[in-house]
Every structure is written in C-alpha cells, then in structure tokens.
Design a protein around this nucleic acid. Structure first.
Lengths: 136, 136
DNA sequence: TCCTACGATGGACAGAGTCCAAGTCAATAA
DNA sequence: TTATTGACTTGGACTCTGTCCATCGTAGGA
C-alpha cells in the first residue's frame, strides 16, 4: 500500500474503491498529472469511476494537505502528491515536463522590507524555466 | 500618448482604434487585469470592440514581449504591462491584490547544478504570498 | 444483518479561451 | 485623392477545465 493511502487511513478517511484508485494513481515522485490525466489512469483500473468523483477526491486531498495544486502554464491545474516536503518546480519550456527541485536558502530572504508594501509575507512559489536535456 | 503605444508605433505596429484602446487600458503600474477586465474597460471607450479582438491583441502584445502573462491563481490569466523591467509578484491570499516587487539577488543562484537535472535554466518566476495590510 | 450518513454518479452549467469565415479598413502606391 | 490589398476585426460556434446538484449506492457502525 502506498504511503499516501496509509496516511489517509490513519486519518480515518472513509475508504472506497474510487478513492483508493485515485490515491494509487497519485503515487510516486515527480508526478504532476492534470485532473483529466488522473481520471484517465483511474478509469483503466476502475472503468466506472466518474469525472466528478476524481475532482471531488482531488479537492479533498488538497484540503487535507496531502496533495498540492500546481499551475505552471495557466492551463489545467496539476496535482503533486509530494506536498509534505516543501519544494519548487523546474519546467521545460519545450515539452512542459516538470521536475521537483529543492533550492538552497530561504526564498523570502530576497524580498527586503521596503518591497513588502506592508504585507505579512508567508511563502513563495518559484517556477524555474528552461530546456530539458531532450529539448535543448 | 502612453509609453507602450509609442514603442508599438516605433515597431511599425499597424494602428487601429481597437489596438490603441487596448494599449491605453494597459497603461500604468501594478496593473494586472484579466482579459475580461481589459475588454470591459475597452468597451467603455469603444463600445463595439469584440472579445476576440481583445484576446488577439493581448496575445500579440505578449508575443512582442511588451506585456507579460501572469497566472497567480489558476483562474483567468492576468496581463502585466510592466514586462520590460524584470520583476516578481506579491499576492494577497485574502483579496487577491497583486503588487510588482523587485527582489534582490539572482533567483537562479538558489538552484545548484545537481538540482538542475541537466536542464538549461534560463529564468525563474516567483510568487510571494501573504496578507495585505487591509486583510491582515 | 440492517441503517444511514457519507460518497459516487452523470448531466447540466459556467468561465476562460480558441478558431474560423466573412466583412472592414489602414497604409501604400499611383 | 482614390484604388487596392493584405492585415485586422467581428461574432458565433466550439473546446477545455472545472463546479454544482439531485439522485443513487454503499462503507462501516449498531
């Protein structure tokens, strides 16, 4: 059983075959699937699963903090199961592939007080852009 | 005439009343309008302007590098006329207001070679999140 | 085993954006 | 100034992504 699934059971998540399949599809590293892609893979294992259920389940996983929403291109949101470890993303401008990366240092350090306009700044998301080895 | 408009004329951009209005709407600092908002403001000055034309014109301004697309919330893209000066964004998690900010240092410096997975990294977009003075 | 509240379903709907055929017009040439 | 023409504009249909809701089904406790 996957890590994610184990944690969800530990939280008393009501388990159904649909939820199990969605959680299984979202296992692994560098996984950044759109809701439609999650649905497509879920359907292979459970042909009757509906689009609504996938959306509901993804939304719940996000609320629980187990999965993060990533939108690197203004198109469909992507779902990243690696939400517990803070990380950023490196995106290929050619093919769109996404890698999880762990920059060094505190990203908030680069924003001096006079650039904060009185905001209480709590976090930063960084999207690095470039070309992957195949596209370069 | 606005800066933007002047530069466009200098590039030999074919000028029409529609394009002029869109360029005028997109003038100023800390402007981050959605395509629909641009259209709404353009209609006040030129009631017949169509949604398609606004989309076409915005797309072209982005291609020319005069305007940047910003998507901070996975909803509608926003258009930022301040594209020539590199900057990042500070977004209020409460009301969604966006400020342009200029962090110090090179954002790419935080990504060590072993975290680049062979990519040729060319840029980074940073979205700082927090609460604005009104929402705090 | 039975109940029932929670979850799943699917179809309608909404928001954002793209595409295209047809009509219009800015800019150039004569 | 007028004619010409290729670029621009229009509006409607369409796609994609996501949300909502009434109804049905079922996991898990009694």
């Amino acid at each position: 059983m996957s890590d994610l699934l184990e944690r969800l059971l530990g939280r008393g998540w009501r388990m159904t075959s649909q939820r199990r399949v969605v959680a299984e599809v979202l296992s692994g590293d560098h996984i950044h699937l759109t809701a439609d892609e999650v649905h497509a893979r879920a359907v292979r294992r459970l042909p009757e699963i509906s689009r609504s259920t996938v959306y509901n389940t993804l939304g719940e996983l996000v609320s629980l903090g187990e999965v993060a929403e990533v939108s690197t291109d203004g198109r469909a949101k992507r779902y990243d199961p690696n939400a517990r470890r803070s990380h950023q993303h490196l995106v290929c401008s050619g093919c769109g592939i996404i890698r999880d990366v762990h920059p060094v240092g505190d990203p908030l350090a680069g924003l001096p007080a006079e650039q904060r306009f009185g905001f209480t700044v709590s976090g930063a998301e960084i999207t690095y852009r470039g070309l992957c080895p195949s596209c370069a």
